[in-house]
Design a protein around this nucleic acid. Sequence first.
DNA 1: GGCAATATGAAATAATAATTCCAATCCATA
DNA 2: TATGGATTGGAATTATTATTTCATATTGCC
Lengths: 281, 281
Amino acid sequence: MDERVPRDFETLRTTILERRQSLPKRIAQIAAYALDNPDDIAFGTAASIAASAGVQPSTLIRFAQQLGFDGFTSLQLVFRERLRERNSSYDERLAALRAKAEEGAGHRAIFDGFVAAASTSLNDISGRLNEDHFEAAITLLAKAETIYVLAKRRSYPVASYIAYALGKLKIRNQLIESAAGLNAEMISFASPRDAVIAISFSPYAPATIEEARVISEQRVPIVAITDSSFSPLAQFAKVWFEVAEADFAGFRSLSATMALAMALTVAVGEKRRDTAGKRKA
Amino acid sequence: MDERVPRDFETLRTTILERRQSLPKRIAQIAAYALDNPDDIAFGTAASIAASAGVQPSTLIRFAQQLGFDGFTSLQLVFRERLRERNSSYDERLAALRAKAEEGAGHRAIFDGFVAAASTSLNDISGRLNEDHFEAAITLLAKAETIYVLAKRRSYPVASYIAYALGKLKIRNQLIESAAGLNAEMISFASPRDAVIAISFSPYAPATIEEARVISEQRVPIVAITDSSFSPLAQFAKVWFEVAEADFAGFRSLSATMALAMALTVAVGEKRRDTAGKRKA
DNA sequence: GGCAATATGAAATAATAATTCCAATCCATA
DNA sequence: TATGGATTGGAATTATTATTTCATATTGCC
C-alpha cells in the first residue's frame, strides 16, 4: 500500500473534503458524519458509529479503506490522537499552571505563572467589556485629528504598541514621551478636536495623572484604560475601561490591556475607513 | 448495588484520592497511574493499560469494582466522557470568538479577535517552551554584568517592559534605543561579560539584525526571541526561543512573547538572589 | 510461627467488536 | 431496457478484549 495515509487529523480532514465529490453516497454520508462528529468516531465502536450515521458497519470500514487505512481501527486512531493532542480543558490547564507556579517548582513555574496570569486576565476581560463604552470610545477617537497616547512605567509598553499600530494604520498620533522633558509643551498643542488614550494602573504614575488633568482642562476628550472606578484617571476621562489584570511575582500581566488597546486601535482605523468611504460616496 | 458510583471525572478523582490510603498495593498503583495518565485510561485496552501501569488486567478490573463500577468498561466511560467535555468548553469558546471575529460583526468582533489571538498564542507557547533552552537562557543572563535589550518596532513594547521589570528588580540593563542615534556607540560598550536579549519577528527589522550581528561579533552572548529557526536572529544567538504568535487584523499578538519575556526577567532575578545568598553563606 | 483473610498473577473463558464475504441493489452506459 | 461494474446490506467469521476463575502469594492477627 504505497498510497499516502493521512496520519494526523488535519490532513485527514483535508483529504476527505477534497474527495467528497467523488465518494459514493453512503461513503459520503459517513464521511460527513465523521467530520461533524469526530468525538463519536474516536470513542464509538464500528457498530455504534454506523448506527448513528445510518449506515452499515461494513460501509464504515470501506470508508476507512478508501482513505488508505487498512481498517476502521487505524482510522479511529487518528481521531483518538486528535483528542490526545488537544490540550486539557482550559480551566484544568489554568489550575494546573497555577498550582505548579504556586508550589514554586523551579523556573518553569515562573513561566507557567505568567502564562496563567495572562490567560486569566484575557478570560476576565472577554466577559466584562462594556460594549457601549467601547463604541463610545471608538467614535470619540475616530473623530480626533491627532490621537495622543499617554502612559508611563508599567503601562508604557502598551502605549508604544498603540503608537506603532496607529502609525501602521496611518492615523496621526503622538506618544507623549520626551527624553528632553518637553511633555508639557507637547500636551499644550492638544485641542478639543484631538483625543487622548491614557493608560494607568495603581500605583498611578503621578506624571500620567497630572498630564491627564492638564489635558482634560484643555477640553481634550480622554479615553482611559485603568483598573478601578476609584482611579484618578477615571474622573478626567470621557470614557473609561476597567481592566483587571492578574499578577504574578509582583508583575501584572498586560495581556488584557494589550488586547483592548489593539482592538480600540484597529476599530478606530476601520471606522475611519468607513467614514472616509461614505464621504466620498 | 446502592453504592454511589462516581459519574464524572472530578468526583471519581476525589473518591480515589480519599481512599488512596486504604487501597491494596497494586490497586493503589493502578489508581495512581489512572490519575496521572487519564488519557491512557480513556483510550487504552485493559491489557495495554495494565501493562503500562505494571499490573495485571485483572487488577485493573478489581480497581474498577472497588470504586463501585461493574467493570473496567464502565470506569473507562468516565475517562472518555472527560475528554469529550473538556474539548467543548474552552476550544469551543475560542472558536466562537474567532468565528464572530471572522464574520466581522461590528467592533465587538475586533475585540474578540484580539482576545482569541492572544489566548491562542498563550496556549501554544505553554506547551512548546523548551525547558532546557529556558534554563540555559536564565543561566546566561544571570551571569551578565549588564543586560542589553534589543528590539524595534513591533517588538519594542516587549523590550520596554523587560527594561522596566529589570529595573524594578535592580538588575543593571540598557535598552538599546536612542533618540540621538547613538545605538552603535551604546552597543560598542558591551563586552563578553554582558548579555543581550534580542527580540525580532518577521519581517525582521534590519536595524535589530544588524545590531545583533555587531554585538555577537563582540562575543556578547545573545538570547533571542523570534519566530522561526530561519530567523536571522537565531544564527547570532547562543540560545533562542521560537514563539508563534497568532495574529488578527494584521497585528500579531504579543501575549506569548510578553509572558516569556517576563518569565525570563523574573527567573533571572531569582537566580541572582539565590547565587548572592550562596556567596554570602 | 501458624492460620485465616486478603491480595495478586496467570491463564481460561465469555463477550464484544472488527472484518470479510456474498447476495442484492443501484447506476451508468450502450 | 439490458448489461456490467460499482455499491450496499446483512450475516458469518475472525479478532480482539474484558472478565472470570483458580492457584499462589502476601499480609495481618492470634
